[in-house]
Computed example of a mutant assay.
Amino acid sequence: MSSERIRVVIYLRAPHAGIEQLEKTYREISWVRGDARGSAIQGLIRSELLRDVDREGEYVLHGEWESLEAYRTWQFGPDHAGNPSALRDYQDRSRGRHYAVYAIASGD
């Protein structure tokens, strides 16, 4: 597997009445909060919840990972595979796959 940094995006959608709850749920997730040293998940550099400014209720959860290997280790490991995400109810499956994994093709 490649050792290059990757980006993972998860497409989320909240009903109008659920926007505040989605944002609150994101802030309460332990791996988002982490600790003084950063993320609580090994290999996760940072995560951000991005709100679409033109389409109310649409969000992207963006994660930056040290490598594809680190992401896959977490993705298929017991800390994730056996524990449904608190954001699962907000995953936007209307576009087919609700997430995507990207390698950086070109940088500065």
Rank of each mutant, 00 (worst) to 15 (best):
Y99K: 11
V60N: 03
W65D: 00
D108Q: 06
V53A: 08
L61R: 06
R97I: 09
Y26C: 02
A70L: 03
A70E: 08
Y26L: 03
S3Q: 10
R51C: 09
P84F: 08
S47P: 00
A14D: 05
H80T: 07
H98N: 12
A105E: 15
E28N: 13
S3R: 09
P78E: 10
S3W: 04
E58I: 01
K24T: 14
D89L: 09
S2L: 09
S39R: 07
S30K: 15
S67F: 02
K24I: 06
E69W: 02
Y26T: 05
R55K: 14
H16D: 15
P78Q: 09
R33C: 03
H16I: 13
W65V: 00
E4F: 07
R95F: 12
L22N: 03
S94D: 13
A105M: 13
R93Y: 13
R55L: 12
G96S: 04
H80E: 06
I29K: 06
G63Y: 03
G57Q: 08
G96E: 02
S85H: 04
R5N: 10
Y59F: 14
V101D: 03
R72S: 05
D79I: 02
L12R: 06
G57K: 10
D92E: 06
K24H: 15
S85I: 04
R46Q: 11
G96H: 04
I10Q: 11
A86F: 08
Q42F: 06
N83Y: 09
I6H: 00
S39Y: 01
V9C: 06
Y26F: 14
I19E: 08
V101L: 11
S85V: 04
G18H: 13
E58N: 15
V8W: 03
L87S: 01
G57E: 05
G63V: 01
A105D: 14
G107M: 08
G34I: 04
A105K: 11
I10D: 03
I6G: 00
A100I: 11
I45C: 04
A36E: 13
A14T: 09
A40P: 00
W31F: 15
Y26H: 11
G43C: 02
H98E: 12
P78A: 12
K24Y: 15
L12Q: 07
V32I: 12
S94V: 04
G82V: 01
D92F: 05
L50E: 02
R88G: 13
